[in-house]
């Protein structure tokens, strides 16, 4: 509940998690997720985890090279991760299927190269369940 401090009301900080289901270049929703994450942090809330699932795993693809006059969401996620030490988790099964691999996974799968962007981690779907259990709010970005 809010508490009153004289003439204005203070809303307590909350713990949020985000689920991102869309690739950076397909629809607006990954950009909306980034914008919402920035708004959350600037309003003083905590982000417990951002979980990238389905095509959303493309947000952590370090070899995507969008034109310079277009948004570079991967780079912006990385900047935000460094600034706030965010937990950016990519679903490992979704990522393997679409070709986003960490060094370790690339070696394990005998692939030529790794392309998981720095600041992102591969983990299982259990990390989304854990995020739901440990956050006060989950906001989903898909489409």
């Amino acid at each position: 509940m809010p508490r009153s401090a004289g003439h204005f009301t203070i809303w307590p900080a909350m713990k949020f998690s985000l689920a991102v289901y869309s690739a950076p270049h397909s629809t607006q929703s990954a950009a909306s997720a980034l914008r919402f994450a920035k708004a959350l942090l600037s309003e003083g809330h905590e982000i417990y985890r951002i979980f990238f699932y389905c095509d959303g795993i493309q947000n952590g693809n370090s070899i995507a090279a969008p034109p310079q006059d277009e948004a570079d969401l991967t780079g912006e996620w990385q900047d935000l991760q460094r600034q706030y030490n965010l937990d950016l988790v990519i679903c490992i099964a979704a990522a393997q299927r679409r070709g986003v691999l960490s060094q370790r996974e690339a070696e394990r799968q005998e692939k030529l190269s790794a392309n998981l962007a720095e600041g992102f981690e591969l983990a299982g779907l259990g990390q989304l369940t854990d995020a739901v259990a440990n956050s006060e709010r989950l906001v989903t970005f898909g489409g």
Partner: peptide, 19 residues
């Protein structure tokens, strides 16, 4: 965007419709 954040603190759950 700040208003969006505030709405999210005032409601639970938050359901996204995108299909």
């Amino acid at each position: 965007d700040a208003g969006w954040v505030k709405l999210c603190t005032q409601h639970n759950p938050i359901v996204s419709w995108f299909r």
